[in-house]
Design a protein around this nucleic acid. Structure first.
Length: 287
DNA sequence: ACGGCTC
């Protein structure tokens, strides 16, 4: 579909109007940006094409400015200061993670939605000045401007109210909210992985959801379960393909919470010193 | 010319 301007669009979703189409090459990857619109709304399709693979994420139009802000964050921050971010837009969650391997640094953007499988694009940072990310950012900026300018005849300029737009830091110590001394743990960790778990009698009412905290390369999964001995919380640490868990009977959960809170208190200075540059939140886009 | 991503 990309770059195809001849003939009528006959494929799936081919009736969508293409407002803008751009391509960007970073190293050997080709990124296609398609700003499209259909009766359900406007969206940005970003495809990453390698010689062998292609993967696509769909960004709702109200998320374009957030993507722009996030790319600015990753371009402008010092390498060692960048952290994972989450962007929730309606029913979708986008995860931004920086990784590095022998090929260099890259930004992984994963789209998770309840219906679809996860899809991911990976943007190489480029050379020393993150020019791959910067070029990506520049295109997002152009698209964002265009999207604000271009209004199709059959559409009014007033958008539907943007709802449930939230951006949360996903800092190393997930227990530490950006509001430092306030204790606001659970609300900050609003990642719902319930779709990863089939409904099970192990679940305790509607609490049977899986939550995850991500810290750099590590993930900590929180799963409620039960067996003949009773209910428990399983906390799993996952790094790469390794996983280890602790099983915490619910009878000990409150003590566990207090104990963690104790160590948060006595290490507060150290934690704030370590994360001071990371608790910044990306500002909302100007409207 | 890569090739990363996965309880």
């Amino acid at each position: 579909m990309e770059g195809n301007s001849s003939g009528g669009g006959g494929g799936g979703g081919g009736n969508d109007v293409e407002l803008l189409c751009k391509t960007l090459q970073v190293e050997h990857k080709l990124f296609y940006f398609d700003l499209k619109e259909n009766p359900r709304g406007r969206y940005l399709k970003i495809s990453e094409k390698t010689s062998a693979t292609r993967s696509t994420i769909i960004v709702p139009s109200n998320g374009i400015a957030w993507f722009l802000d996030l790319f600015n964050y990753y371009v402008n921050s010092d390498d060692q200061d960048v952290f994972s971010k989450e962007l929730q837009l309606d029913t979708k969650v986008f995860y931004f993670d920086v990784g590095e391997n022998r090929r260099g640094r890259f930004l992984k953007i994963s789209e998770a939605s309840v219906s679809r499988n996860r899809s991911t694009i990976i943007v190489p940072a480029g050379n020393a000045h993150d020019e791959g990310w910067a070029a990506f950012r520049n295109i997002l900026g152009e698209i964002n401007e265009t999207s604000q300018l271009v209004v199709l005849p059959n559409q009014k300029n007033s958008e539907a109210p943007e709802r449930l737009v939230g951006l949360s830091d996903d800092v190393g110590a997930g227990f530490i909210s950006s509001h430092s001394s306030q204790s606001a743990p659970a609300a900050e960790v609003n990642v719902d992985r319930s779709s990863d778990l089939p409904p099970s009698s192990d679940d305790i009412g509607n609490m049977g959801v899986s939550k995850v905290i991500r810290a750099d390369q590590k993930k900590f999964f929180f799963d409620l379960g039960s067996n003949s001995r009773g209910h428990f919380l399983r906390i799993s640490e996952v790094t790469g393909s390794d996983r280890s868990s602790i099983i915490l009977p619910l009878s000990g959960l409150k003590q566990f919470h207090e104990m963690v809170g104790h160590f948060v208190e006595i290490t507060k200075d150290k934690i704030e010193g370590m994360t001071g540059a990371n608790v910044r939140t990306v500002d909302p886009p100007q409207r």
